[in-house]
């Protein structure tokens, strides 16, 4: 598949947190379950845990409350405390697709002692377009992703 820049869809978000980079990296990778929008899971049972294996080539997967594991992708680059690259291989139909590679790069930069800026870039979202028909159904349903995100903002706030 082409990686032509004109059709590349990328998002970039940043957030600043009151932790040193080491702890921010650790929190982001070891406790993803605690900040991941829990409705955004692909297993048959509810989301119990999100696991990022701490090494290059490690797995990125969810574990349901029934114990079943579903792959989300893998670790392309494990470089604590400054940089993490995950491959998100969940297609628009919310199934793991080994052929699909979208890239989530997260960098952790010390802004001042005890404060870290995260930069998250999710690249090649256009590759999900292969299954856009299914995706449309997921997103447009009232219980779909967009609806649950609105609820989560309330919960967190």
């Amino acid at each position: 598949m082409s990686t032509n820049s004109t059709t590349e869809i990328q998002v970039h978000r940043t957030v600043s947190v009151p932790l040193p980079p080491e702890r921010a990296f650790d929190l982001f990778t070891a406790r993803m379950s605690e900040f991941w929008p829990s409705e955004h899971s692909i297993g048959e049972s509810a989301l119990a845990e999100v696991v990022v294996e701490p090494s290059d080539g490690g797995r990125w997967f969810e574990r349901g409350v029934d114990g079943a594991e579903c792959d989300w992708g893998r670790v392309a680059e494990w470089a604590p405390p400054g940089r993490l690259v995950l491959l998100w291989q969940i297609g628009a139909d919310w199934r793991f697709d080994p052929e699909l590679e979208t890239e989530v790069e997260v960098t952790f930069t010390e802004e001042s002692p005890g404060r870290t800026r995260l930069d998250l870039r999710h690249r090649h979202l256009e590759r999900m377009g292969d299954k856009a028909e299914v995706m449309r159904g997921v997103f447009d349903s009232p219980g779909g992703w967009a609806g649950t995100l609105a609820n989560l903002v309330d919960l967190v706030g």
């Binding site: 921010a24 929190l27 605690e34 900040f35 929008p37 995260l118 995100l149 989560l152």
Partner: peptide
């Protein structure tokens, strides 16, 4: 953009 904004806001709250 909105999806990651929400997720990172959650992360910031946890931090």
């Amino acid at each position: 953009d909105r999806f990651w904004s929400t997720t990172l806001d959650n992360f910031a709250a946890l931090a």
